[in-house]
């Protein structure tokens, strides 16, 4: 599968990733970044590293690391 690396310092709390995630693996974290926005967190158990969040994020917060399959 893979994992998602978050650059939460870039997050502006638009939550388009939460809206679009097909596995409902993203939620608000309750933590604010330096800009004052409540940032997101990803549930590693639910995430399948599909990359939908990467596509819709306007702030380049999400980085998808997929395991190579042969």
């Amino acid at each position: 599968m893979g994992k998602v690396v978050l650059h939460t310092q870039r997050c502006k709390g638009c939550y388009l990733c939460i809206r679009e995630c097909p596995k409902k693996a993203i939620r608000k974290s309750g933590i604010n970044n330096k800009k004052g926005y409540e940032v997101i967190e990803v549930d590693g158990q639910l995430c399948v590293a599909c990359g939908t969040c990467y596509v819709v994020c306007p702030d380049y917060v999400l980085e998808i690391h997929r395991e190579e399959t042969t």
Binding site: H7, G51, Y54, Y60, E63, I64, H65, R66, E68
Partner: peptide, 10 residues
Amino acid sequence: MVIKAPDRIT
């Protein structure tokens, strides 16, 4: 494989 925004814009 890593999917991330190009370095030139981040």
